[in-house]
Design a protein around this nucleic acid. Sequence first.
DNA 1: TTTGATGCAAAACGTTTGCACGGCA
DNA 2: TGCCGTGCAAACGTTTTGCATCAAA
Lengths: 168, 168
Amino acid sequence: MDQKSKVDVHRQLAIFSNFLRKRGLKITNQRLLVAEKIFGMHNHFTVDSLAEDLKDRRQEISRATIYRIVSVMVEAGVLTEHNFGQNARYYEHIPTQCHHDHILCVDCGRIEEFVNDDIERLQNKIAKSHGFELQDHALNLYGHCRELKETGKCARRNVNPEDQIDLG
Amino acid sequence: MDQKSKVDVHRQLAIFSNFLRKRGLKITNQRLLVAEKIFGMHNHFTVDSLAEDLKDRRQEISRATIYRIVSVMVEAGVLTEHNFGQNARYYEHIPTQCHHDHILCVDCGRIEEFVNDDIERLQNKIAKSHGFELQDHALNLYGHCRELKETGKCARRNVNPEDQIDLG
DNA sequence: TTTGATGCAAAACGTTTGCACGGCA
DNA sequence: TGCCGTGCAAACGTTTTGCATCAAA
């Protein structure tokens, strides 16, 4: 991690700690460790993969606790939850980019991000025309990325299945 | 159900039966009952709510079987699966409208449908720019519908929880 | 000291599966 | 008759929860 990232992580930890304090929640070792790990990541993860990543710590953190911490972080607004169509929920650390949507490869599980202001505007228009006050949205595109077509194979089979998307 | 709908249901049953025959799958009572029920519905449902709806039949159909039939119907292309962000998968009978997206009320669970060609076009453009060959997409808008604001209350609390969306 | 957080194990939930039986082709 | 579909119950994977213990405030 470069110097700038470290500073970012600390700033985000401070924001999260503040949230905990304001809500009368305790600032525990587990909460700080989980939050630090997440703030240092810039990819999508599941509770399961996060638990694996946290195994290198001196004392392992239980899954029940990770589930509880993750949901506090979602409430705090520093984490978003995604339903990409599989069994497990995916999470993503927010600060990377304020808002974006996802495009997923059905072959290799690759997840890329995009922003499109025109679509955002159209969504607002549609909501209004249905008499809805828009709160949130999820836009996921599913397709085949270049890799399989160009190289004849892709990551799907060679990678730890826990790190990937299975769109079956 | 009006006369036209009944004809539609029969036409769709014929299409589904054809699919079964072509694939060497058997045309069983359970498959016909489940398909008929689904073809007669024009809303979104879960396997659970479907099982409840089928309880008024002479002999109840087991959930395992319903799961199996539903997945055959998805393969047959007469049913689509949605992930609206809750635990259970939602299904929807296709013929209603060829393709559409959804807008969901976070208060009462109402689900409305929309189509927007501009968004479809933009999605294709985005996929292309990422080097993806677009296969499918999911666009869900979440917001507050008029009901709660205008009447001060909404369906959420008065309805069988199994029939609704819980975006909690 | 008080209260909330943690870890464990068990429960809960939606979904899938192995197997013996039954019904379609 | 042969083989696939069904129903049951058990297994499954993810998530939640009850409870005793532990640690932050």
